[in-house]
């Protein structure tokens, strides 16, 4: 299926130098639609939802924010630092969302692994099911997020709850991509 004009416009907003210096797609030359579909399939395979992943990221961001910019220990074995960088970023999906450049770094001391995400990542995952392209500085592979953030994947995803089912694109005027 051909990519919709809307997603093509979004993809061009994601190019390096338009919103951010490095863009959102890294060295991933696939169409945005293909990237979204593949990550959506991964999320389904993990038995979770974009909303649940975003909720976990948000939960840990809020816990880390208690450190007022300094790293703090968060049970059971996370070390989290939430820090701001000067400026704000608009969402490339053109819905008018602008977010503070807030970086959350989660170090899982049990795994010895770390991941850094921004508030824009949380928004793009929750609202658009977008985890950035391969090779992008802030690429968030869903399986890596689920593992490092220690999501409980045993429960089935809450598909019946409004807004909790996996979505590829929330533009009401453009679901057909």
């Amino acid at each position: 299926m051909a990519q919709s004009p809307y997603l093509s416009r979004v993809q061009s907003e994601m190019r390096p130098g338009v919103i951010t210096q490095d863009g959102f797609l890294g060295n991933d030359h696939r169409e945005l639609q293909e990237i979204l579909i593949e990550d959506d399939a991964t999320v389904k395979r993990l038995n979770t939802t974009h909303a649940a992943i975003a909720a976990r990221m948000h939960e840990l961001m809020e816990a880390g924010a208690e450190g007022l910019g300094l790293p703090i220990d968060v049970p059971p074995h996370f070390e989290i630092q939430v820090d701001s960088v000067r400026g704000k970023l608009p969402c490339p999906f053109m819905g008018g969302t602008i977010v503070q450049k807030l970086n959350t770094t989660v170090f899982n001391t049990r795994l010895g692994r770390e991941i850094t995400y921004t508030d824009l990542n949380i928004h793009m995952i929750e609202e658009h099911g977008f985890y950035e392209g391969r090779g992008s500085l802030f690429r968030m592979p869903p399986e890596e997020l689920a593992e490092i953030l220690e999501m409980d994947l045993r429960e089935p995803p809450p598909e019946d709850e409004e807004g909790a089912t996996p979505r590829l694109c929330v533009r009401k005027d453009d679901h057909d991509f």
């Binding site: 000067r86 400026g87 450049k101």
Partner: peptide, 9 residues
């Protein structure tokens, strides 16, 4: 602070 990208205001 953003080099003219309209992201710092």
């Amino acid at each position: 602070a953003c080099g003219g990208r309209g992201s710092c205001g």
